[in-house]
Design a binder for these strands. Structure first.
Length: 318
DNA sequence: CCATAATGTAAACCCATTCT
DNA sequence: AGAATGGGTTTACATTATGG
């Protein structure tokens, strides 16, 4: 049994099928089948129960797979330990939803880093499902996933047992509009006022919705407009907001300086705002690094600023 | 003494086929 | 339909032999 064998059973567990796993591993099914049998022979217990529709881990198998994951990860950590000069290099990787407050926190975090050190920093905006996948696999160390509060149970289910989680922020969605939008001077808008406008949504929202359609038939999203445009590129979203002054999109509360920079205004929607939760995730076995903590410090600072401003505004209307 | 070449073996591979 | 087997071929790896 070698590391390769362990990777095989982890992939097989993930795929739920030897044939599919073989495809993912760029090998053929018989060889994978044989390899799994060899591991089973060596550990002395069946890892999977074979069924006509694929494979399911046995009770002992679950434990074996968990061991395998840990071993693979440790080896990866060992390699990265040897690869980089840890004293002289800052490594950081984050996947997060598209969000003004997160990108602002990220930017502030980066400028605070020691100028004399090498940087290996990755920040990528991505859907919650992809974030979970990448963080689980170990490609990214930190992830922030966003879900509707009402779908939280789903998220917990998706996260499973191997990821630690921490609530970053719970906020009411805001309506993001151009400064030239006739509604821009208002404090709050009603659903009726938005109804005629064009709603802009992220391009991947349809496909990567956290709740699977088949399992959760009732529509949680508040649908207001009949005119909906899916756009996944930030610049185009902003252009469209300006070109079509009736258009709007739901967004997380955004820092004022960003709003000013883009010529945008953010307002509450009376009564029917969806409530979102942003949750930080990272692998169970991983300790937060110095850089991670620095980022979180900035993240919470930006969040608290926004929280405070939003409270002030509601107290002094007009 | 180390580096390269030759050799033998185990493993990975592929395909056809059978089993559940 | 998907998993397992068998048999033949190729590839990878380790060991040993040879040469600078």
């Amino acid at each position: 049994m070698n590391l390769q064998h362990l990777k095989y059973i982890v992939e097989a567990a993930k795929a739920g099928s030897i044939s599919l796993a073989a495809e993912n591993l760029f090998m053929n099914q018989p060889n994978l089948s044989k390899a799994i049998r060899e591991v089973e022979a060596e550990v002395g217990t069946d890892i999977f129960r074979r069924t006509p529709r694929g494979i399911v881990p046995t009770e002992q198998g679950e434990a074996v797979i968990e061991y395998a994951r840990r071993i693979i990860r440790e080896v990866e950590e060992m390699k990265s330990f040897c690869r980089e000069d840890r004293r002289n290099k800052i490594s950081f990787s984050l996947r997060a939803p598209r969000s003004g407050y997160i990108s602002q926190a990220f930017a502030r975090f980066v400028v605070r880093l020691d100028k004399t050190k090498e940087l290996d920093i990755q920040f990528r905006e991505s859907s919650s499902l992809n974030t979970i996948k990448r963080v689980e696999e170990g490609g990214y160390n930190l992830g922030i996933v966003r879900c509707l509060k009402s779908q939280e149970r789903y998220l917990q289910q998706l996260l499973g047992r191997r990821l630690k989680r921490e609530l970053v922020w719970e906020f009411e969605g805001r309506v993001l509009i151009s400064r030239t939008n006739p509604l821009a001077s208002k404090d709050t808008v009603t659903a009726g006022e938005l109804e005629a406008g064009t709603e802009i949504l992220y391009g991947d929202l349809r496909a990567a919705s956290l709740a699977r359609e088949d399992r959760r038939p009732e529509e949680e999203r508040i649908v207001i407009s009949k005119r909906r445009v899916f756009v996944s590129e930030r610049g185009s979203q902003i252009d469209l907001l300006h070109q079509d002054p009736s258009s709007y999109m739901w967004f997380s509360p955004m820092p004022d300086d960003l709003l000013r920079r883009y010529g945008l205004v953010q307002i509450r929607c009376k009564a029917s705002s969806p409530v979102f939760r942003d949750v930080l995730i990272y692998r169970e076995d991983r300790k937060l690094s110095e850089a991670d903590r620095l980022f979180l410090e900035e993240l919470y600072r930006v969040r608290d600023d926004l929280d405070r401003r939003m409270r002030d505004r509601t107290r002094t209307p007009g």
